[in-house]
Amino acid sequence: MRNLLRWETALVFLLIVVALTGQVSTDGSFLSGGNLFYLGLDIGEIALIALPLTLVIVAGEIDLSVASVLGLSSALIGWLWNAGWSLELILPTVIVVGAICGAFNGFLVTKLGLPSLAVTIGTLALYRGLALVVLGDTAVADFPASYTAFGTTPVPGTNIPYPIVLAAILAVLFGVALHASSFGRSVYAIGANEEGARFSGIRVKRVKLILFVLAGAVAAIAGIVYTFRFSSARADNGLGLELAVVAAVLLGGVSIFGGKGSLFGVLAGVLLLGGLRNLLILQDTSTEVLTIVTGLLLLVSVLAPSITRRVGTLRKATP
């Protein structure tokens, strides 16, 4: 626990460093209201998906299909809109479909006992493929401005984008679920010692199934946000986004082996990752470099705990 606190302190410190260097190197435009608005927009989907994914990873599982669910939900919005459905009907439908995608992952993991890594690599391809079947490589863009404004304008009188407001509300809900509820206790126990959790009467399979359903549903919500933000429903929306989300969660101090981590850390991780990417974009860095940076951050965050532990034992060995 103390290790974790130290990691979160380090993250906050890093955030300040990135903010200050950003501010200096961009002559003050990094922390300007306009840029913060775009930064917020840019991390909206990552922040949303990172919330349920944190719980999934704390429980010792992983869901790599989230970005494909995002794409599928975007494709569905376009298809149903073309078919003449109203958005009031489309949006709940899409969220339900996302939940079903998550339930399918959860079913394969809990009922058939398959490893979630393999399952969700499979459904990563499957759901993206379904998205292409639904919408092909066309784009649907004629959504009413009242909806696209959700992804393109700030809350009146502020620089806060609506998706961030949505993410903040969900963050509170997920934070309470993970840190203050009996459900959250079960999630930690499962991640730290699944057998022990089962011997304590925790319904391991049910908890995991719920987590996968949540991940699917929130990924679909992120798909809605993404679609309106770009006013464009496409099957390849959010391609590869799972990399950024997993990187942010691990950077936030969640152990890839389960049982450890906090939602506060993950939010700091999302901000740090988003801030770095935004800063690199401001300096006209190519997308290839962005991907490389994201990948490196993922590696560093996986390596960091084992390095700090080794340093710790070295210190103990030589008093």
């Binding site: 959250g184 206790r185 022990g196 304590s200 009467g201």
Partner: peptide, 29 residues
């Protein structure tokens, strides 16, 4: 070590692990 306890978790969390329902109000611990 494997079945009885979650070794990394605290004494109080382990003691409460089989009584979570009783220690919660509307799911909040």
């Amino acid at each position: 070590r494997q079945q009885g306890l979650v070794m990394d978790a605290s004494i109080e969390r382990n003691t409460a692990l089989a009584s979570l329902g009783r220690l919660s109000t509307f799911g909040l611990l």
